[in-house]
Design a binder for these strands. Structure first.
Lengths: 225, 225
DNA sequence: GAATGGTTGTTAACGAGATGTTAATGAGTT
DNA sequence: AACTCATTAACATCTCGTTAACAACCATTC
């Protein structure tokens, strides 16, 4: 799963290039141009790291940082600033920034520093990201499927198939496509195997009637929820 | 307990001032003037953080950093350098440095940065600290596992495996990951060895039914408590 | 709509390989 | 020589993807 970054920067040209580069480096980036928007984003979803420009229209970077720190004492924050002076840097660090880069900065260095802090991030209590399907929580990394406290452990193949279906809900997924991807090939027996797994998954998800795995005769399946 | 810093720097005047300031800031500092001495110090006792000058007589800072990283993948490292150029900084970061400061640096900034990384350090399991698992107290350093007065002494390998499992409770931990980390490689016999240790640990933890080491067939284990 | 041929749903059985466990081995220490 | 401990061996047991078997279903043809 790609790390999710919150990038706040009002310079349109710079932010365009930077975001592009970060995405190339396999990060997922949400970009905001001012502190207010950034704050709304931050409240809406959990990020892995923040990159904040110090000079921002409406609420400067420091204010935003303070707000964020109040909610999340752990999230790594990198500051960007055009001003290089010492007091600025010190204030940033005192506010709970983890590093302070001066513009113009090297994108490569930024990426390395991001990785420093992602590496140092304390492992979440129960690692791996969950996906929600109806009443269930599916954790692909941990092979778990949870419904109000009840934990099922899936087998490797079960998790693979479920994961594949979940990536494309409510659309037609061809049999041969699944087989090629997960089994690596497509023959009669693999097809039968797939059917067995579909059947097992239906049973595992059976307690939520809003979830269905529909068969389209001769073509494939549709995962509905 | 004051954090213990390893400070490697050959400039006598600078190091004198810096060490003094760091001690004022409530750090305990071991200062070495060259890479060889530093390496000997590092092997002798566990440090909380390293501050390395890049230019050193006998083995430069980068070489030292590489050596240190091989033994300890976690310890935070800050580089100091008179050279400010970008390639130098990048090389440092790639080598596993956490930050790179250019001389002359502000001592206050150094202290703030040290604190950033000490704060981010994963909670030390070393240094004789105990971890509680259910009814047990596990001390990785002393290889002891205690339950209401009853003391068991683990072997080195047993402790390593338990330690690794405890770092990530309730998550799937892959076999190959454990083997790569603890045994350094992953072949059939090492795998069997791991199974033997899992079995022994289960027996040692057997008096607390709330602790379980679950196997996920073909993939790894889950340490539940 | 009955017959046919292919597809899918479901359950059970199978078996290769993974794991659990105990004991034997042998290298290194005391 | 006695001891410690990781590894290897040996054997028992378990798991899970596959295969089998049969029933239900669908589409097409007569």
């Amino acid at each position: 799963m790609k790390p999710l970054l919150l990038y706040v920067e009002d310079d349109v040209n710079l932010s365009f290039v930077t975001k592009d580069n970060l995405e190339l480096a396999q990060f997922q980036v949400v970009h905001c141009t001012n502190g207010l928007d950034a704050w709304r984003c931050f409240e809406r979803q959990p990020f892995d790291l923040c990159i904040l420009d110090v000079m921002l229209p409406q609420s400067d970077g420091f204010t935003l940082a303070r707000q964020i720190r109040q909610i999340d004492a752990e999230i790594p924050m990198l500051f960007l600033s055009a001003r290089a002076d010492k007091d600025d840097r010190l204030q940033g660090l005192r506010l709970g920034a983890d590093d302070y880069m001066t513009k113009p900065f090297s994108i490569e260095e930024l990426i390395l520093k991001i990785n420093v802090f992602l590496r140092r991030r304390k492992p979440p209590v129960s690692a791996g990201s969950c996906q929600t399907i109806g009443l269930y929580q599916f954790n692909f990394q941990n092979l778990t499927l949870e419904k109000d406290g009840q934990l099922q452990t899936l087998t490797h193949r079960e998790a693979e198939v479920l994961h594949y279906l979940m990536k494309r809900p409510n659309t037609l997924i061809r049999r041969d496509e699944i087989l090629k991807t997960i089994w690596g090939d497509d023959d009669y027996f693999m097809g039968r195997s797939l059917d067995v797994f579909i059947s097992r998954l239906r049973k595992r998800l059976g307690h939520d009637p809003s979830i269905r795995i529909e068969n389209l005769h001769g073509i494939g399946f549709r995962f509905l929820f």
